[in-house]
Write a protein that binds this DNA or RNA. Structure first.
Lengths: 122, 122
DNA sequence: AGAATACTTAACCATAAGGTTAAATATACT
DNA sequence: AGTATATTTAACCTTATGGTTAAGTATTCT
């Protein structure tokens, strides 16, 4: 398991705490695209500079890279921070994914399983 | 798949964007404890009211519940928001967990990739 | 060259976040 | 009743965040 820096996690979680940025991430997960394309769904709600700022936040978090292609900037989603978030949250999976089922088992049977019996859904 | 509200995700990601709060979550994952116990590791760095504020942030995010027990408040980690984060990030797993392998495949075999992989490192 | 396109940067504003200290509240101990 | 313990609330400060509009930069089109 790779140990990631707290600052990196700070920036990644902070970046993902905004719905516009999550929408951008969702869009980018379907493929690279230009800033204008990314901005288009939000243009009635916020301005282009606002989108540009969001992109910089994503960039600082390492979630986005841009490659200049003529006058267009091709935006690309970088997966590493998502992998880190996944790793972080999965480190609690044992905790949360067994919690309810294990509790139910504890209450029904009186056995004390070291490894809480089974999960219903992962 | 359960669809969770954007506001809930906003609050959860924002709550997790702070290292003190992540440390609190980590501590709570090992078992319920009092506010003082939670605060103890941070007392040289920040004040008790600061910790109290962090707890309220976690509470608003649904990550924490408190149960009064005499003059002590027993803090308990609520797993649901973590489950939601997991669900959110797992929806990108296909994207990020295959990325590098796919790239390797593209480079080794000469099958024609839709997206010619020409950059090495992101 | 000049105009359009695709952005970013600058300057600014309002609100939120994270910290502080001091005071308040509630329960427990003697 | 009075003191200690466990915590929150209040008032305040500083910096960060998310938005704005206006201006700047770089590339492409005519």
């Amino acid at each position: 398991m790779v140990k990631y820096s707290p600052e990196s996690m700070n920036r990644t979680f902070a970046a993902l705490a905004d719905p516009t940025r999550r929408a951008i991430v969702a869009r980018l997960a379907q493929g690279d695209c230009s800033v204008n394309d990314l901005a288009e769904p939000f243009m009635d709600a916020i301005s282009l500079p606002a989108v540009s700022k969001h992109l910089r936040v994503l960039e600082r978090a390492g979630l986005l890279s841009q490659e200049q292609d003529g006058r267009v900037r091709r935006c690309h989603l970088e997966p590493e921070p998502l992998r880190q978030v996944s790793g972080w949250v999965e480190s609690y999976q044992r905790f949360w994914s067994h919690q309810l089922d294990a509790l139910a088992d504890y209450l029904e049977n009186d056995t004390k399983p070291k490894t809480p019996p089974k999960k219903r859904k992962a």
